[in-house]
Nucleic acid binder design. Sequence first.
DNA 1: CCGGCAATTTGCGTTAGCGCAAAACTCGGC
DNA 2: GCCGAGTTTTGCGCTAACGCAAATTGCCGG
Lengths: 237, 237
Amino acid sequence: MAKVDPSLVAHLPLFAGFTNEELEEILREARSSRHPKNSAVFVQGEDAHSFFLLLHGHVRAAKTTPTGEQIVVRYVAPGETFGLAMAIGLTQYPATATAVDDSVVLAWPTGAWPRLVQKFPALATNTLQTVGTRLQESHTRMLEMSTQQVEQRVAHALLRLAKQSGKKLDHGIEIDFPISRQDIAQMTGTTLHTVSRILSGWESQGLVESGRQRIILREPHKIFVLAEQSADSGSAR
Amino acid sequence: MAKVDPSLVAHLPLFAGFTNEELEEILREARSSRHPKNSAVFVQGEDAHSFFLLLHGHVRAAKTTPTGEQIVVRYVAPGETFGLAMAIGLTQYPATATAVDDSVVLAWPTGAWPRLVQKFPALATNTLQTVGTRLQESHTRMLEMSTQQVEQRVAHALLRLAKQSGKKLDHGIEIDFPISRQDIAQMTGTTLHTVSRILSGWESQGLVESGRQRIILREPHKIFVLAEQSADSGSAR
DNA sequence: CCGGCAATTTGCGTTAGCGCAAAACTCGGC
DNA sequence: GCCGAGTTTTGCGCTAACGCAAATTGCCGG
């Protein structure tokens, strides 16, 4: 619940072009809270009482069908917003947000949004950009799911995670939060079994090193090549 | 190039809450143009010179991979905006827009957007809502592609098209623009062969009636049931 | 009215990846 | 240091859907 230093968030896309005074006014309306690993920040279907900015940790946004199948919509990294339901005209959260690591978030009550946007129109245009970017990413994932085989999709998913939340090592890049085979399966539209087989294969070729909820890309470039190469012996769909 | 009557567009979500005077000012900056069937309004990768509002006809937005595979991102119906690249921070179109019927569009030069938004902040919030809605739809499609079989996905796709652009008939609903098996395949992540087989099956059961680039849902309710039913004998992914 | 092209249909062999099952491993907690 | 739950690995059979090929149909333009 401590006050947040404006200088800590001034560089974020959401707040591009804001003065420190304006930021303070905006931040005054927010409450920060901690969420221990594996706890839900909000649940799909729940009333959208707040929208959020992730300060520390990592949050998984997942969508569930009535019959219980899930997909991981995205992983939220520090500095990113999530739970923007009301900004896009929803009254309930369309997905469940779960902290995959001990996390700290900043939460604004839904009711503050119209007021803030009215006073600071740049909030709307900035948010429009980030939502637009997410829409692009979503289309790209759809394209991959339609046209690529599982191995390529997994490669792309890992490269994206490495880019977003990779920790550089002496030799390789480590995904900087706990992620299971099941999670990757739900990001790529396959099963944990298939992901496990693929990673085992890569591991024996020295491309990755992995363990329980932990993945290190040892040969990012080779994985990149894998991701790009279309399944030979096939033609365009 | 004729002037557009504000009252014709006042009811659109994009212009919610605008007065006739404001609308006239906004419309003054736009040019209308005709696009014959099968001509491109803009091409993926091209410089985003304009953004658009569809007045008449239907436009298909499709994304292509470097290797030539395509997916249909969406069909644009009259009253909807498209080509919003710049609003979301892109300088080039991320997809190709093709008129599938003789179409009339309203086009604003990209440069007008910042000015319009600055003067009419509601444009940004309205656009944020529509982009947000599209993001939801995109996530829903991803969920379907991950968890459902082809037949269910095709059923969902047709129901969506019927809802958006369906013409009510005495007995059934007709998709009100030319659409091929190939198009449906590219909406659902499958092949035209599989779509053809599925539609043939449905036709022999009297669920649909279809021909060259033409589909009529004769039993929308039964198709709805088909769409919802999970492949039995299976379990959650 | 006819020719030709594009869309559609359908058959058939192939296979990537699923689904199920069981074993092995890891780690946190007691 | 041991126990137990959750995660990962791996084997095996199966099938939904693809990929290829060929025939058929419907439509537009001349």
